[in-house]
Amino acid sequence: MTERPLTAYKVLTAEQMATLERDGCFQGAPVDLADGYVHLSTADQLTETVDKHFAGQSDLHVAAVDLGSFGDSLKWEESRGGQLFPHLYGPLLLETVVAYGALERDADGRVKLPITG
């Protein structure tokens, strides 16, 4: 069995990031609310997630989330291409975010991960 990462990533619009900072929690984007969980991606899945679901959008942010904070509310479930994705069944709390910043890409077009302290 492959070891699961300790950190996952949430892509947020500027407005959603402001909500997370102001309220200390984020209930989810419209797609999250419709599906019943907050969609997260691993580092390896992040660029494809952005390219597929946020194409053409600007002013995006990436939050690095400590997966050890969620207990039973975090589930690994099959999604795109049979990959297992982390799904959070509950709000994303600011206290579980270990780093965040504006979405940037490297020279190869991959999304840069926010620097964790």
Rank of each mutant, 00 (worst) to 15 (best):
V50M: 07
L6Q: 15
V98E: 12
P114H: 01
D106K: 00
G28K: 09
P91W: 03
R4N: 10
D66M: 00
S79P: 00
V65Q: 03
E104I: 09
D59F: 03
L74N: 02
L93D: 09
K52D: 10
L84W: 01
R22D: 05
Y89R: 00
G36Y: 00
V62F: 06
D44S: 13
S73K: 02
S79Y: 10
P30E: 06
G90P: 03
G82I: 08
K75W: 02
L93M: 12
L88Q: 04
A102D: 09
A14F: 04
S73M: 02
T49G: 06
L20W: 03
K75M: 07
S69Y: 04
L84K: 07
G81F: 01
H61D: 07
E48P: 04
E95F: 06
H39G: 08
L6F: 10
F26G: 05
C25W: 13
G90D: 01
H53E: 10
K75P: 00
F54T: 11
T7G: 08
G71A: 08
H39A: 13
V111W: 10
K75N: 03
L20V: 07
A18F: 00
Q45R: 08
Y37Q: 01
P91Y: 04
R80Q: 09
D51G: 04
V38K: 06
T13K: 07
A8T: 09
A99W: 08
L103D: 05
V65R: 00
V31T: 12
V11H: 08
D59I: 03
G109M: 12
F54H: 15
R22G: 05
D44T: 12
G28M: 10
E95K: 14
A34P: 04
G24V: 12
S58C: 10
L46N: 08
D106N: 08
E3Y: 04
A64S: 12
L6I: 08
L33W: 02
L84M: 04
G56P: 08
L12H: 01
L113Q: 09
S41A: 15
